[in-house]
Amino acid sequence: MSKNKHVLFGLYDDDEILLDAVKEARNQKLDIMDVFTPFPVHGLDPALGLSESRLHISGFVFGLLGALTAFGFMTWIMVVDWPIIYGGKPYWAVPSFIPITFELTVLFSAVGMVIVFYTICGLGPGVNSVILDPRITDDKFCIAFDVTNVDESEQSELKKFFEQSGASEINNKTI
């Protein structure tokens, strides 16, 4: 930990109150650090102005890689490296290669995408994230502001925002 972050966060009791609060914060041009919820709240991404995830692109790229790997490898083995005639079929028996090509497309795509997912989210076995409040994975909805370089008066304004938008608790934590 090179630098400690001071986080001011409010906890909300309901996803609908949270959504309104997020919209209000965006209206007031408040710089939200992150929002934490116990389940995916629909409508939160546009409210936060998050761009659509591009994760599926990696799925396509890995899938393509899988298809080419499978088909290329089988072609090389069956035609170049050790050609054998099986059941009177040609060496390059394309229909026979389809099932494995399909399976490896799916395999590469799924495995690749999962690896990309955990990498870009910074998640993985042994990762110890700082949990602002243990109830966030239960029934609390949290909006967090980074207040490391924010002076007192602005902080009290943020607190006022929490109070007005219906937060049930306001806390701060150094992470």
Partner: peptide
């Protein structure tokens, strides 16, 4: 895996 419930993580998760 250090899951926090961040909005961006949920979006990617979905």
């Amino acid at each position: 895996f250090g899951w926090t419930g961040s909005a961006k993580h949920w979006q990617r998760w979905e």
